[in-house]
Design a protein around this nucleic acid. Structure first.
Lengths: 195, 195
DNA sequence: AGAAAAAGTGTACGCTGTAAATATACAACG
DNA sequence: CGTTGTATATTTACAGCGTACACTTTTTCT
């Protein structure tokens, strides 16, 4: 069979670059194709259709959510057994910063993460890292899932607000610091046995 | 001058209905115009352009964020003086439920609230209600703004997640209950003097 | 050498937002 | 009463969008 001139990965790379440079509005099948020096219809073989392209973009966005070193150094089972990850605070902060960085890099792409249940189904690695950190913090097993959801919801909301300009004119870092401080206290309270 | 067949308000009403019935994708200048039995170009006089139409939609969305009775019964100054709004918990829950209701009614419109810094400029009434409630809860004046931001960010994030299907398959009400409970505790902790 | 098959191309269609010129319908005035 | 002014709505047109469909190209396997 004929050798492929482009791959799905290349298509998504080109799309992500385009989106970062010129915004979501500039992401058209024709523009992406031009960037790859290919006709628009060639893309359809690799991403299905425009929605598939955007879904792929979301994938890529989540792949950029880097998990801090502390959370990847050992697997969850070992950590639980040893009561490890002594610095769960740093782990959670690192994850939050990573998400915020992605939001800032692709401001008008970020709201896509709230759609098509992409967030929960994708980003399993960061999710597991959050679980591990919360476990390390002492959050009881039965409410781990709810606690993770609550925390992630807040962080995504914060990042989306930052990307959308809702915090414009504010000292965002100190807002983040304020929130982070209180969220940490909340986690400690849960760990201490707040029913 | 010629009598207007349509008003900006009517245009936005028609648009909102259309969006609720058929989703954001169905909101085209032509479709809105058809609903009003007018040509597409007639809309431009009233909303400027498509983006203006969407901005108007966001306005309307926020107008639907109803402020619970407890928060409207007296103004903030009086409340502060009397230390009123004895049930700030109910007030905040009411506001959150109202936001969630809007998110559920217009699922794919909701992410628009995160864009175009719409959230901060519009929803002043609910915002003031949150302020009043937090004041009533005993949150110190200097951190009132940050606390309000933190709380609103979480609620918007929760509503957006719910609308986007991120909580699909879960018992959303009990997730909300879990979060609400802990958020209340967080507010109490702030009021109690957590620096 | 010929067949099979995947990859990419070319063309075309209906849809979108909207610029520009034009027609309409009323209020106010001489 | 007719005229004029003016905001309103229509008409027409165009470029750009996603993509269906038929086609050609380029490889590998028999």
């Amino acid at each position: 069979m004929r050798p492929a001139r482009i791959s799905r990965a290349q298509v998504l790379d080109a799309t992500l670059d385009l989106a970062a440079e010129a915004g979501l509005g500039a992401v058209t099948m024709r523009a992406v194709a031009a960037r790859l020096e290919v006709t628009p219809m060639a893309l359809y073989r690799h991403v299905g259709d425009k929605q598939g392209l955007l879904d792929g973009l979301v994938e890529r966005l989540m792949a950029q959510l880097t998990v801090p070193a502390a959370a990847t150094s050992s697997d969850a089972a070992v950590e639980t057994a040893l009561g490890a990850d002594p610095d769960w605070r740093a782990t959670l902060r690192g994850l939050a910063l990573s998400i915020r960085a992605v939001a800032r890099r692709y401001p008008d792409l970020f709201p896509l993460l709230f759609q098509r249940r992409a967030v929960t189904e994708g980003a399993q690695a960061p999710r597991q890292a959050v679980f591990a950190a919360l476990r390390a913090a002492g959050v009881p097993e039965p409410e781990l899932a709810s606690a993770e959801r609550m925390l992630s919801t807040f962080v995504y909301g914060f990042a989306a607000s930052e990307a959308g300009g809702r915090f414009a004119g504010l000292d965002i870092e100190s807002e983040f610091e304020y929130a982070a401080k209180h969220v940490e206290r909340l986690i400690e309270a849960i760990a201490a046995g707040a029913s």
